[in-house]
Design a protein around this nucleic acid. Sequence first.
DNA 1: CCTTAGCACTCGGGGAAGTGGAGTGCTAAC
DNA 2: GTTAGCACTCCACTTCCCCGAGTGCTAAGG
Lengths: 338, 338
Amino acid sequence: MDQRKERILRAVVSDYTETVVPVGSHALAARYFLELSSATIRNELSELVDDGFLAQPHASAGRVPTDRGYRYFVDFLLPQEVVDPQLRRHVRQGFEAAEHDVEAVLEVAAAMLSRLSENVAVVTGPANAVSRMRHIDLVLVHPGQALMVEIATGNSAFQRLIEIDPLVDQEELSGWARRLNDMYVGLTADEVEGVPLVPGLAPGLQALGADVARGLRQLATRSALVIHNGVRNLVRQPEFEDPARLRAVLEVLEAQRILGDVLVQLAPQAGMQVLIGHENSIEELRECSLVLTSYQAGDQLWGTIGVVGPTRIRYGQVAARLQLVSQATGAALTRLLA
Amino acid sequence: MDQRKERILRAVVSDYTETVVPVGSHALAARYFLELSSATIRNELSELVDDGFLAQPHASAGRVPTDRGYRYFVDFLLPQEVVDPQLRRHVRQGFEAAEHDVEAVLEVAAAMLSRLSENVAVVTGPANAVSRMRHIDLVLVHPGQALMVEIATGNSAFQRLIEIDPLVDQEELSGWARRLNDMYVGLTADEVEGVPLVPGLAPGLQALGADVARGLRQLATRSALVIHNGVRNLVRQPEFEDPARLRAVLEVLEAQRILGDVLVQLAPQAGMQVLIGHENSIEELRECSLVLTSYQAGDQLWGTIGVVGPTRIRYGQVAARLQLVSQATGAALTRLLA
DNA sequence: CCTTAGCACTCGGGGAAGTGGAGTGCTAAC
DNA sequence: GTTAGCACTCCACTTCCCCGAGTGCTAAGG
């Protein structure tokens, strides 16, 4: 692919991205190639079609980038976007209001990203890289019933009601809690389950080990949730005027699990990832692109954050802003969790 | 309004609700009034228009219910809907998977309700009717930093990192925690702030009162969040084919706060509420109806749950199913929180 | 060999015109 | 009060046509 072809491909992509109208040789010549005639450009265009980078909606129409065309654009032609420092500041500030709750931070991240990217933002819930017990507490609710609170690394809390002997009072419970802390602090769910039974222990206390492990395990896998925000941006995209098409995408977004599986599966890979059109495995998102990266808080907590939009999404700008939001999210979570 | 007019109004509402096409005198006579001629029905229809219950999109079109027409229908003509016992069982079962986490229960409720109502479901987060301190714990994280865990009535937990004197160790912290429990258990946020400073207290401990109150206050107002689900159902409604109209509604749903304010404001009123078209105060929802009620877990926790749809929503069926889901939600939360 | 002007051809979008039919209101008779 | 009959209205839909943007091809020029 020679340099002129690349220039032309880049011009087609950026023009189509703006106008959402197939771009013709005349428009191209007038706007980007004053030194070339439309005929020359026509020749180049037709070769780009032959090579699969562009397509023609119909015989006498202009050209539109194919998934392959976007792929080449993203891999080789993407201009380096710089984020306005003012925007950068604005993003940092946006997180300040929400710094008390992991989920609130993620909600803010999604809202911010959808606004900045002018598309749909998706964020997976936090997964704990390693979830270790930090503290257990037992509080008497009624006679016979207690509340077990577990705090894990990452400071996420899990609470659960448990049945106990009606004769056990808060004093005894506190003793139990001390024992549990002695036994389990610093362990993972698997390790908790591996701890052998202690002969002399109160039978009620003995039975708690399994509950503790279950809670820990649940804390580690809260990531099932997938927040999304910005559907309002989707409906004004011309490619989603057709309600059926829009519905298919919404179906996927609201199902959570479908998208969640893909995001979690891709998450381990470092850096920014771009999935264009058919490159993602979700049938309903064949006409969408995903721009993804991960957020990270220390070495404890991580998740995936990204943007879903039509394939003609502005990859450069979106990637830059996603980067910005993902870093700010990580920073906010780090501050939150210490 | 005589009985025949009521019958006709009911027929127009239910026919229009199904077909979304203005209903004419012929169709009415053929389908619902075999004993009357279309001319008679025409006379009645034109009186119903004069009274403001029906409207004509244009001079030679059939009739469409107005907001006032729906209002009359809802107030006086609503058939008593029974919910299929199988559906009832299905709803109960749907909650079983999610009984470990308040938010998860609410997510399930929203998903379920949107499916059953075939519209958008909205659920406000849980508010605690009275949030009183039940238990406080302090855990050393690093020297100089501790985790404060508060448990309030309703068993909601709040955690927060606080700065402390680096010389304070876990033993001393545990002593502090005992003091805090002695001082604050059973109090509300306001009362906590009203507790006078105690002269002999460690200065680090003294300062915690404000933090404790802040946590309590936050626990009581988590309701800010508004979950919604079922936007996919909205896009296939003919009244939202126009992207601009759809966008306006999405704007409101995704803003959370706008709808949240309305829901919280209406929440105290008991029973089921129906807001038809202009009756709600949100400009963008002028062409929507809200069917709302509240869920309740014991006397501790409550929130609003409801359905948003076009004004021609099936009020009877939606109300019955909303009732079902709201009860199941309350039951699930009650089991969860005891 | 690449570039360009010229030209005939294609095709979709959009406006104009026409038509069918559902629906109305009114009148007069029962 | 009800109904048949009738003239009238108006939208939705189809058809038709045409404009113009855009193409591919050819042949001439650098």
